[in-house]
Every structure is written in structure tokens, then in C-alpha cells.
Design a protein around this nucleic acid. Sequence first.
DNA 1: AGCACGCCGACT
DNA 2: GTCGGCGTGCTC
Length: 675
Amino acid sequence: MTARYARVVVDSRLPQLDRLFEYRIPPALEGVAPGVRVRVPLRGDRTAAGYVVEVADARAWEGEVADIEAVVSPVPVLRPEVWALARAVADRAAGGAADVLRVAIPGRQARVEKAWLARAAEGAAAEAAEPAATEGAELTETDASPEPDAPPESPAPLEPDDASAPLLPGLVEARRKVALECAGGVAEVPVAGGGTAWVGRWAVALAGLARQAVERGEQAILVVPDHREQRQLRLALEAAVGEERVVELDARQRNPERYAGFLRCVDGGGLAIIGPRSAVYAPAADLGLLVVWEDGDPLLAEPLSPWVHARDAALVRQGQTGCALVIAGHARSTDAERLVEVGFLEHERVGAHRVRVLPTALADDGRRVPAAAFHAAREALASRPVLVQVARPGHAPGLRCGDCGTRARCAACGGPLGQRTRGGQPGCRLCGRLAAAWRCPSCHGIRLVEVGRGSTRIAEELGRAIPGVPVVVADGEHERLTLDARPRIVVATRGAEPVADGGYGAVLLLDGDSLLAREGLRVAEEAVRQWATARALAAEGATVVLAGVIGPTVGALTGDTTVPFAKAELAERRSLRFPPAVRTASVVGHPDAVAEALEALAGIEHLDVLGPVPAEGAPGDRLERAIVRFAYADGAHVAGVARGRVLAAAARPRKPGAPPRLRIRLDDPEPFDGL
DNA sequence: AGCACGCCGACT
DNA sequence: GTCGGCGTGCTC
């Protein structure tokens, strides 16, 4: 009997281990097949978890080969397409594939898995009784134990719906790649148990696109920034394709639910898969459509190494599978606009939303609510709720000394002190510590005065100014997803706006000035995105008041498309050589390692280096930081060199527990945040 | 990361 | 004469 061999990706953060290792499959060990989780020995007496990527009859490694220690689970959780995706995404980001897999594959839940395997066995038995056409591009395994591939309980195929005229018909079939600007507005969709729910019209539009894929028996993956959008999209999808064809992959779900959803994707068939940024890696075998909603939202950037943005992962996956791709939002991001300008995406816009956007100056008395806003609010409150978008939660975002004017800071961490409630104990906005007996460090005064207005204070003021109307607050502390159509004032921080049945009668965008006052590359773009998101919640014909803002961002909101604004932003970034007109790499580490890395990168055309400058790190060791800017066309080259330098540097550090000698992060937005 | 192999100072 | 320092290299 000839031995068989498995090539395994080891779950390790070490760049040195970021390649496939070959192991012998002991003849007695069952269930080894591509995609399954295994435990393998590593030099010494260490063992590591990993995934089987390939199984082969011949060995490729000349040296000694160890045996696979155990099969952790026989479920093929790493599909070949997802492995290829993780590898390519990691390569593009100069990071490790295992780091990407950690995001792509949720933790195992033994009970959920057992149930899934039992159903899979049933399905296989049924199929054996009545042989059906075997699926194509399946795992390469030949003679393993009962293959859990068969869709156990796939819902009946979705019949084409001729009644409703679909948006962008044929988009999935033609495998189009589109940058989609969605007009605002809300729509009512039927809910499974009876009744209806109101969701953004964008969700209905995207659900219609997903339906195109599901009708073809393919999967659609729809990536959203967070659970608020996910809820709307889920409702719209359930109405469009049926509850049984919608899978949620949400980190907020309980682990078992999340894993069950993940395993349903493995089943295949016509499915709409929705989830946060990690859903872009969902195990879909016949991917027809990939959608990224609101791609400008910072939540779509993975905060873990190698810090891949869901939009970028989607672009890679589209390239590998050839599926249709939709990068959508209420406002066009500069990144999506770049893809339009280079001819990769087609521009599309769907829907129409008739609202009146009224830019106004701030009230003369320094209060946040201009007269025009009061007027619009009073008028709308006759029949509908009114949304007031503010910058900060709580009562007073800042405090200062009543005697000398010094800004009050936390004694422990130096963060700004604020007040959560009227008359409440001052507390640090950074570390949350309460400042019981505050004393001004410069004049020893003890009197504090409020600076600025948070959501609850604005709510109080509006409640007093417009008596008889209920006021509700929606912010991080008071989460509120929906609202009925009764007149009331809703004060919400950005991103926390509830969806009101039928839409808001008026939307007041306050604090725009403070939003734009911050310095940063993406400040204006992000402001426009957040305003457009709030504007989208307005009812047809509503008034939207944009208070205290001047400059090009106003035009982005008063016009009926944000594309010219995105174009202008992008043109400016291009002239400055700022992202996303160029790609960047931030190089941080030991001065020698940084110098070596920069030397290795020198000579690439159109590449320039900012720095190196001293950077802050652990006390004791010197750190330097440099920013490298380069053209998209050189991405693979730069990433390859960067990875090589990180690898070389990793072989060196000798201090235990010390940070890596060299860290290279591609497309790091942080250095440009303050520009 | 951990752990093994490999060449130079103070010990029984 | 040897025990052991941690500098370099490797992990199937």
C-alpha cells in the first residue's frame, strides 16, 4: 500500500511558517481530505492546528516527513476557492494566509457540526438510492469516507419572478462589475410571520440583485458594515428570495448560530449570504454575485493583520471566480470612483429620492439649531418624526475650568472630561474614570463649565423649544433600530439613526462644522457619506437641513449624485499622490531593518519614500517609521519585496517577548488620518 | 515563537 | 580537560 500525503497550511502568525507543509497520512487515520481541520506535529514536541489544502499520492518534500496527528473534524471547512482567495489576499497585503483564514473560518462548534454531519449522511444515503448528477468542481479527494458534500436540505429552486421588473436585469448573468450609487428613501417589505417592515430602498435594490444569483442556483455574498444594515438587508432578502435561502454570518450571533450559517454555505445551492466584512470569505462554491454595501465605511477595514479591506478582498475574489461584482453605497467612495475611472467598474445609479436639501448658517446665538431647522422640524412634526443627527453622545462632550478656561482633563490618562448626563459626575471620555473632586491644575478652581452639546443635551433643548413632542435619543448607549411613524424628535449620533416607518418628515444635520473641523485625508469624504446615510432615511419630499457647513461638501449633498464630489476628491488626491490614487506601505521597526527594507524597495519606478522618522514604541528600543507610496501596477512587486524583508527580519530578533523587528502594513490609512 | 545545533570563558 | 553562554537556523 502506497502512502498518501497531505499538504497542510499551519495556523500560525509566524511569517516563517506561512507556506504549505507536507505530512504523511497514516493509513489508519480516516477523514483526511482537502479542507478538513487537522492537528500536526511541528519540530520539537510542538503541535499546531492546520487545514489540509491538498492530498497527493506522491511526496514533494525531500526531507523527513511526519505523520498527521489527528483529524480535528471531518467537515471540509476550507474550500479550495477560499484557500486560493486567502493566499492571494495575503500576498496582496504582504501578510500571512493563516491570518486571513482566522477571519474567514469561524471557530468550530462540535454540536452544530455533529448535526450537520448527520444531515449530510442522510443526504448522501438518499442520493445513493437515486443517483443524481454529481457536482462539478468538487474537492479533489477520491476515496475518503462519506463525503459531506451533498446539500442535505436545500430548498426548492427559486422560480424566476416575472411579475416584478428587476433592477439592472441580467447583471449577474452578464457578470457585470458595477459601482452602484443608490438613491435614498425607505420601502415597506413583507415579513415572514405576517405584517411588514420598513427598510432602506437600497436593501430592496440589493436583494433584487441577489435574487438574480439565487434564481440561477448560485450564491450571492452581500457584505455590510454592521448589524443595522444587515437587519435591513436580511428583511429585504427574505422578502425577495424566501427565508430559507438567506444565511447570516454575523459575529454578533451566538457562536453556534454563526457556525451553523457557515456550514449552510458549504451546502451550496441558491443562497443569499449576508454578513460583516468577514463574510467576503464565505465558503461559496458557485458564487454568482459579490456585493459590498457602503464600501466607504471604515468598519469594512479588518482591524487584524494583515488589515485587508473587504472591498479589496472582494476585488481579488471577483478576479478569481469571475462573478458579478457590485460596490454600492448612498455616496460614491473615492476608491470605487477610481475603479470606475480606470475602467474596471461601470457606473450605475438606481432609484430616485426627492428631498429638499437646505444648507444654512448656524444660529447667531451660538446654539446648534438654526432657525430654518426649527421651521422645517415644526412643519414636519405635524405628521411625521424628525431626525436630528449630532456629533456626540451624552450631555456635554467637553468641560473647562470656569475660572481660567483650561480644558478639563482626566487625572489618570489625560483624556478629555465630559458629562454623560445633566448635572452628572464628570467622567473621562477616554478611560471612563469618574473625576470626583476635580481641581483645575493651573488655577486650582473647582467650577466646571460645559463645552459643546451632546445628544441628550440637544434632545433636552429641542424638547423645551418644541413642547408637547416626545423626544428620543439613539446613540451607542441607547440603541434603537426602528421607529413607528408617529411624530417625535429623534436625536441620533452618526451611524446610530433608526429607520422610521415611512421615513422622516425632516432631517437636521447638526454639528457638520465640527465634523469637518478635524484634519484628515478622508474627513470630507466621510462627512458626505454620513450625511448621505442620514438623508436616505428621509421620506419622499422631506426637507434636509445641513447646518453650518460651507465648501464643496455642501454641493455633494444638495445635488442628486455624489459622483462629482468623489471625482473632485480623487483628482485632488491624485495631484497630491495620496491614497486611493496611489497605494501605500507603512514600514515600522528597528532603524536597521527599516533602512534595509527601504533599500530593497528603492529602484521601483514611481515609488517614493516619506521618512524615515522616529516613531514611538516601547520605551528603550528605538523605532523608525517610513511611508512608501507606489503605483497599483507595482502592488505585487512591492508586496513581494516587503514580505521578503519581514521574513528576513523575523529570523533575527532575539529578545523574548519583543515586538517584531519589522512591520510592513500595506494601505494603512492611519498615517494619512492627520493630513 | 520555541528549540536545536554550534563555537569561546570560568569551573571541578 | 569540560559545562554552558546564547548567535544562527529551522520547523514537513
